[in-house]
Amino acid sequence: MSLFTHLQAALVARLAELRSDGERGDSPVPTAVIIFGLVAAAITVTALVATRAEGWMNAIPTAP
């Protein structure tokens, strides 16, 4: 039980320290949202290009 009490006290102290620091920078949430959006756009563009390329390659006539 002593370990649990020590960990709880350390957590409370660390959270209090973080709350007291007013200038901590930007939250990682907007950065994660931007990255997710860029990944989604990249997947969409890649799928579109792959579909167009496959259609173009299928339109090439084969040698008899």
Score class of each variant (00 low, 15 high):
M1E: 14
S2C: 07
L3F: 13
L3G: 09
L3W: 08
L3T: 10
F4N: 11
F4C: 11
T5S: 15
H6Q: 15
H6R: 15
H6E: 14
L7H: 15
L7K: 09
Q8A: 13
Q8C: 09
Q8K: 13
Q8P: 00
A9N: 06
A10C: 08
L11D: 11
L11R: 13
L11M: 10
L11P: 00
V12N: 08
V12L: 11
V12W: 08
A13F: 03
A13H: 07
R14H: 06
L15T: 03
L15G: 05
L18P: 01
L18T: 01
L18C: 12
R19K: 15
R19G: 07
R19C: 06
S20I: 00
S20V: 01
S20W: 04
D21T: 05
D21R: 12
D21Q: 13
G22A: 14
E23D: 09
E23S: 10
R24D: 02
G25T: 04
G25K: 02
G25M: 04
D26R: 06
D26G: 04
D26P: 07
S27Q: 02
P30S: 01
P30W: 01
P30V: 00
T31N: 08
A32I: 07
V33L: 09
I34M: 07
I34C: 09
I35W: 08
I35G: 03
F36R: 04
F36I: 01
G37H: 02
G37M: 01
L38S: 03
L38A: 03
V39H: 04
V39E: 03
A41S: 09
A41C: 11
A42I: 03
T44A: 15
T44W: 15
T44C: 15
V45A: 09
T46K: 09
T46N: 05
T46A: 13
L48W: 11
L48D: 06
V49H: 09
A50W: 11
T51Q: 09
A53W: 10
E54S: 12
E54W: 15
G55N: 15
M57H: 11
N58Q: 13
N58E: 14
N58A: 13
N58V: 05
N58H: 10
A59M: 07
I60A: 03
P61Q: 09
P61V: 03
P61E: 08
P61D: 07
A63L: 12
P64V: 07
